[in-house]
Amino acid sequence: MARILGIDPGSTITGFAVIEGGATPTMCVIDCIRLPRVDFPARLGLIFEGLTRVIQQYRPEEMAIENVFVSKNAASALKLGQARGAAICAAAARGLPVSEYTATQVKQAIVGRGHADKRQIQHMVGMLLGVAGPIQADAADAAGVAICHAHHARTASRMRVAVSTTGRR
């Protein structure tokens, strides 16, 4: 199965995780890019540069990223969207296909229900990846996105096999 880079974008902290997908995903790295208090365009550049380094070091084959949710604060949603754009550009510059998942999809894949809280995500990601000790929330969310993508990719692969063996489309 593919090596997957999961991203939880943020304008102050961007979580990332690289996992080996498969029946039992395994962790390569799980961490965060903590951005200094500099002007916003500089932070976007740091997200791009930081993720470019992660891609060069861990050589993922695919990237999965959390979709922007609609926020009450339009300015915050716009900044989050721009952080996502910087992350997507880092992947696109390296030729990685990008898949997007809503927070609800990720929570359902990890915890089994779409309204799980941060602590539940952190706990389940730790259990699924065999991580002992606490995981920073943004890094756990990024790993959750990667695991969600691995599950979706496995299901899609099985469906293609089922379609090809039944002759149906």
Rank of each mutant, 00 (worst) to 15 (best):
Q105D: 08
A83N: 12
A91S: 06
I47W: 08
G95K: 01
L44F: 08
Y58P: 00
E49P: 01
R119I: 15
K79P: 06
I47P: 03
E61V: 01
G45V: 04
E62K: 04
I88V: 15
T102Y: 01
L51H: 06
E100T: 11
K107I: 08
F69K: 09
R119G: 03
P97R: 12
I55Q: 02
Y101T: 07
N73I: 01
D117L: 09
Y101D: 04
A64H: 13
R94A: 15
R119D: 15
Y101I: 06
M63Q: 07
G112T: 09
A109E: 04
Q108I: 06
A90C: 13
T102S: 09
A77F: 10
V54S: 05
T102M: 02
M63H: 10
A87C: 05
Q57H: 10
T104M: 06
R84M: 05
T104P: 00
V70D: 03
I65W: 02
T52H: 03
A77K: 08
I47T: 12
V68A: 12
I88R: 12
E62P: 00
L80G: 00
G114N: 13
E62W: 02
I55N: 08
R119P: 01
M63A: 15
Q105R: 03
V111N: 01
L51Y: 06
R113H: 15
E100M: 13
V70L: 10
K79Q: 14
G112L: 10
A83T: 06
V54C: 09
L96E: 04
R43N: 13
A90L: 04
A74K: 12
P41T: 09
L78Y: 10
R84Q: 11
S71M: 11
S99A: 12
R43P: 07
R53V: 04
V70K: 12
L51F: 02
R84S: 10
I47D: 06
Q57Y: 10
P41I: 08
V54F: 14
R84F: 03
D117Q: 07
E62L: 09
V68W: 00
A92T: 14
T102N: 06
G114F: 11
S71P: 00
E66F: 03
K72L: 10
L51W: 05
L80K: 01
I55A: 03
P60Y: 02
R53S: 08
H115L: 03
G81Q: 05
A74P: 10
M63K: 11
A87S: 10
T52A: 08
L44S: 05
A93M: 15
A75R: 09
A93Q: 15
A83L: 11
S76E: 04
R59G: 07
F69C: 07
A74N: 04
A93E: 15
I47Y: 08
L44V: 05
P60T: 00
E66Q: 04
A75N: 09
I47L: 06
I47C: 00
G81T: 00
V106I: 15
